[in-house]
Amino acid sequence: MANKALEALKKNLQAKLDQARKATEGATSLPEGVQGPLLPNSGNARGKKEGLAHAREGHAGRRGDILEAFNNKTGDYKGRADNAKPPLLIKVSIAGSGFEVWKTHKNADKTIDTELARIDVPKLDGIVSDWAPQSYANDKGDASFSGPLVAGGLVDQGKNSIDNLAKTVPPVILKAIPKDYKDGSNVVLIIKAHSRGAVAASIISKKLKSSMPKMKIELTQFDPVPGPSQRGKKVDIAVGDYTKPGKGKKGKAKDVKTSDAVDESTVIYSMGSGYAKLKKADLGFFTPQRVHGAKRIIVSGQNHGGGLLKGFMYNKEKFKGARVNSLPPGAYHDVGVISDGGEDDGVMQIEKMTKDDFMAKLAFTDSIKVADADRKRYDIVRKSLEEFFAKNG
């Protein structure tokens, strides 16, 4: 079963390529049924199946946004040739500690979605079986990796530890790319991850960018937390160019270049871990990873993993999962929760803020939300924002 699932993953990616090529083959412009109308910028259309345009090819999230841009020749694909090779979209999720799959990939009874099949076969793309990470794939060609599972995810050990995921996931992804795209041109990797999985995802993204620079990588990190006694990139990483603020009144800011920067990035920081009562202030069990150079920072008053299940609402449009990378670059803070009893009940509303407004909002949130045990978390968020505004104004 597992061997067949891995082969299905590879064949499905090739099938997507063949299908997309067929739609554009021999045409001076895309057929009407493929191009379709532009979607209105409305939460009532984008993100809901009944409102999808043909250009989105049946996809509601970030994948649909990219396909819409390609088929309608907008955004990154503005001015593309009519016979341009369509983008190959690979979607990867890495769960947080103690979770076998992404939370939305579980049924109401907490069983794993039957569309997912185990793919950590005896020999997973050259990885010795004992250290092949626990992983799954579905018939859409999506891959899902478990977070650390030893002792229920309490410790960062085993085949799904941060280090082993960072070592073993890149070859799985690289070998799933069809030969037509082997140089990475027009390949888009959409990777979303939570907690320790998000820490691993940041390292994985940089490794893949270094080995295949032409591949476009989009990274979404939900509250990246490495856990105690970690070091190096697991606690401090640059995913893009950034600016170090100057110290003191006369200090000069310093621009820092990142050679293996990812193409799109969003980090979501929660202001409270939700576990403050279980630890002392100096242990830092839930101190987040310091992420430099993210194009978007979302700060939420929610607990660890805020926004992971329900997403965020911005300008009456929902951004959930990897689709937060469709938000305009900027720094966001939640301003309230929807409580109308409808399908968006419980979704946090966010707003883009200036530096002065953001710091005032952050200070207010700190005064009512952040426990002493989460003080290091608050300091990381504050420093990340100071750095973000030093670069972006």
Rank of each mutant, 00 (worst) to 15 (best):
H105M: 11
D163L: 10
T114A: 15
Q221L: 12
V225H: 14
A137M: 12
P228H: 03
D180I: 08
V121L: 05
D142P: 02
T104H: 04
W102A: 14
G184E: 02
K103L: 10
P224K: 12
T111V: 12
S185A: 15
K106W: 05
V121T: 15
D109Y: 07
F222A: 08
G158N: 06
L174K: 15
I190M: 15
V155Q: 00
F222S: 03
S135P: 00
H105C: 05
A132N: 07
A176Y: 09
A201Y: 09
W102P: 00
D156E: 07
K106Y: 07
K209T: 02
H105G: 01
T104R: 12
E218I: 13
W102C: 06
V101E: 09
A193V: 04
L154E: 09
G184D: 06
P178T: 07
Y136D: 09
V150I: 12
E115D: 15
G147S: 04
D130F: 06
V188K: 14
A132K: 08
V169T: 01
K103C: 07
I190H: 07
A166M: 02
K179Q: 11
I203P: 01
K214V: 08
W102H: 08
D223N: 10
S202H: 04
D180P: 02
K216D: 02
V225M: 13
V199G: 03
G153P: 01
K123I: 15
F222C: 05
V172H: 00
V199I: 06
G153I: 13
K182Y: 01
V172A: 02
L189N: 05
G184L: 07
T104P: 03
K140V: 08
N138S: 15
T168W: 02
M215T: 00
S146M: 08
V169N: 03
K209E: 06
Q134A: 14
A117Q: 10
N160Q: 06
G153Y: 12
V188I: 12
I217C: 11
D109S: 02
A193I: 04
A151W: 14
A198H: 06
A198E: 10
